[in-house]
Protein backbone atom coordinates (compact mmCIF):
# COMPACT_ATOMS: atom_id res chain seq x y z
CA UNK A 1 0.00 0.00 0.00
CA UNK A 2 1.29 3.43 -0.93
CA UNK A 3 2.04 5.71 1.99
CA UNK A 4 -0.58 8.35 2.69
CA UNK A 5 0.52 11.68 1.35
CA UNK A 6 -1.50 14.73 2.23
CA UNK A 7 -0.10 16.77 -0.63
CA UNK A 8 -1.83 14.49 -3.16
CA UNK A 9 -5.14 15.92 -2.09
CA UNK A 10 -4.22 19.59 -2.25
CA UNK A 11 -5.70 21.51 -5.13
CA UNK A 12 -2.79 23.32 -6.69
CA UNK A 13 -2.96 25.57 -9.72
CA UNK A 14 -0.37 25.22 -12.44
CA UNK A 15 1.20 28.33 -13.86
CA UNK A 16 0.29 29.13 -17.43
CA UNK A 17 -0.94 31.85 -19.73
CA UNK A 18 -4.57 32.44 -20.54
CA UNK A 19 -6.23 32.14 -17.16
CA UNK A 20 -8.85 34.60 -18.37
CA UNK A 21 -9.15 32.83 -21.73
CA UNK A 22 -7.91 34.39 -24.94
CA UNK A 23 -8.04 37.94 -23.62
CA UNK A 24 -7.21 39.26 -27.09
CA UNK A 25 -10.91 38.86 -27.82
CA UNK A 26 -11.65 41.71 -25.34
CA UNK A 27 -9.92 44.11 -27.68
CA UNK A 28 -11.83 46.84 -29.52
CA UNK A 29 -8.81 48.78 -30.75
CA UNK A 30 -5.63 47.06 -31.90
CA UNK A 31 -2.22 48.66 -31.26
CA UNK A 32 -0.08 48.56 -34.39
CA UNK A 33 3.59 49.58 -34.25
CA UNK A 34 4.90 51.68 -37.13
CA UNK A 35 8.49 50.39 -37.36
CA UNK A 36 9.59 53.38 -39.46
CA UNK A 37 8.83 55.70 -36.52
CA UNK A 38 9.51 53.44 -33.48
CA UNK A 39 12.87 54.54 -31.99
CA UNK A 40 14.61 51.14 -31.49
CA UNK A 41 13.29 49.81 -34.82
CA UNK A 42 14.38 52.90 -36.73
CA UNK A 43 17.87 53.10 -35.25
CA UNK A 44 18.41 49.38 -34.76
CA UNK A 45 19.78 50.07 -31.27
CA UNK A 46 18.28 49.19 -27.89
CA UNK A 47 16.53 52.33 -26.69
CA UNK A 48 13.19 53.54 -25.34
CA UNK A 49 11.08 50.37 -24.72
CA UNK A 50 8.44 52.41 -22.91
CA UNK A 51 5.70 50.19 -24.39
CA UNK A 52 7.35 47.12 -22.84
CA UNK A 53 7.78 48.85 -19.48
CA UNK A 54 4.23 50.12 -19.12
CA UNK A 55 2.28 47.20 -20.64
CA UNK A 56 0.16 45.86 -17.74
CA UNK A 57 -0.16 42.42 -19.34
CA UNK A 58 3.42 41.74 -20.43
CA UNK A 59 2.41 41.14 -24.05
CA UNK A 60 5.06 43.39 -25.66
CA UNK A 61 8.60 42.07 -26.04
CA UNK A 62 11.79 44.01 -25.34
CA UNK A 63 13.16 43.29 -28.83
CA UNK A 64 14.01 45.26 -31.96
CA UNK A 65 11.37 45.80 -33.23
CA UNK A 66 9.00 45.26 -30.24
CA UNK A 67 6.42 42.57 -30.97
CA UNK A 68 2.87 42.57 -29.56
CA UNK A 69 1.19 39.26 -28.71
CA UNK A 70 -2.30 39.79 -30.15
CA UNK A 71 -3.52 36.51 -28.64
CA UNK A 72 -3.57 38.14 -25.19
CA UNK A 73 -3.32 41.94 -25.75
CA UNK A 74 -6.43 43.47 -24.19
CA UNK A 75 -6.17 46.65 -26.23
CA UNK A 76 -5.99 49.10 -23.33
CA UNK A 77 -3.88 51.53 -25.37
CA UNK A 78 -1.37 52.49 -22.65
CA UNK A 79 1.48 51.67 -25.08
CA UNK A 80 0.10 54.12 -27.67
CA UNK A 81 -0.25 56.83 -25.02
CA UNK A 82 3.23 56.33 -23.57
CA UNK A 83 5.15 55.97 -26.84
CA UNK A 84 7.32 59.12 -27.04
CA UNK A 85 7.54 58.87 -30.84
CA UNK A 86 3.79 58.24 -31.33
CA UNK A 87 4.71 55.14 -33.30
CA UNK A 88 1.77 53.05 -32.04
CA UNK A 89 -1.60 53.61 -33.62
CA UNK A 90 -4.83 52.18 -32.21
CA UNK A 91 -6.72 50.76 -35.20
CA UNK A 92 -10.27 49.49 -35.29
CA UNK A 93 -10.24 45.75 -34.57
CA UNK A 94 -13.08 45.04 -37.06
CA UNK A 95 -10.79 45.58 -40.05
CA UNK A 96 -8.63 42.65 -38.90
CA UNK A 97 -11.58 40.26 -38.61
CA UNK A 98 -11.67 37.44 -41.18
CA UNK A 99 -13.84 38.35 -44.18
CA UNK A 100 -17.10 36.46 -44.63
CA UNK A 101 -17.24 34.39 -47.78
Amino acid sequence: MKPYKFSNFLSKSESGPGDGGRTGSWRVLRPVIDTTVCIPSKTGKPACFNCWLYCPDAVITKTIPPVIDYEYCKGCGICAQECPANAIEMQDESQFAPKEK
Partner: peptide
Protein backbone atom coordinates in the same frame (compact mmCIF):
# COMPACT_ATOMS: atom_id res chain seq x y z
CA UNK B 1 14.58 50.68 -18.79
CA UNK B 2 17.56 49.23 -20.65
CA UNK B 3 19.04 47.33 -17.72
CA UNK B 4 15.70 46.29 -16.23
CA UNK B 5 15.42 42.51 -16.29
CA UNK B 6 13.37 40.82 -19.00
CA UNK B 7 12.24 38.05 -16.65
CA UNK B 8 8.46 37.91 -16.36
CA UNK B 9 6.73 36.33 -13.38
CA UNK B 10 3.20 37.18 -14.47
CA UNK B 11 1.61 35.35 -17.39
CA UNK B 12 -0.34 37.19 -20.07
CA UNK B 13 -4.04 36.51 -20.48
CA UNK B 14 -4.89 37.09 -16.82
CA UNK B 15 -8.28 38.30 -15.57
CA UNK B 16 -7.32 41.91 -14.76
CA UNK B 17 -9.27 44.61 -16.58
CA UNK B 18 -7.70 46.23 -19.64
CA UNK B 19 -5.41 49.04 -18.52
CA UNK B 20 -5.21 47.82 -14.90
CA UNK B 21 -2.65 49.77 -12.88
CA UNK B 22 -2.14 46.72 -10.67
CA UNK B 23 -0.88 44.83 -13.74
CA UNK B 24 2.05 47.25 -13.97
CA UNK B 25 2.67 47.21 -10.20
CA UNK B 26 2.57 43.42 -9.90
CA UNK B 27 4.75 42.81 -12.93
Amino acid sequence: ILNLTEDEWVNPGNRACAGCGLGIVYR
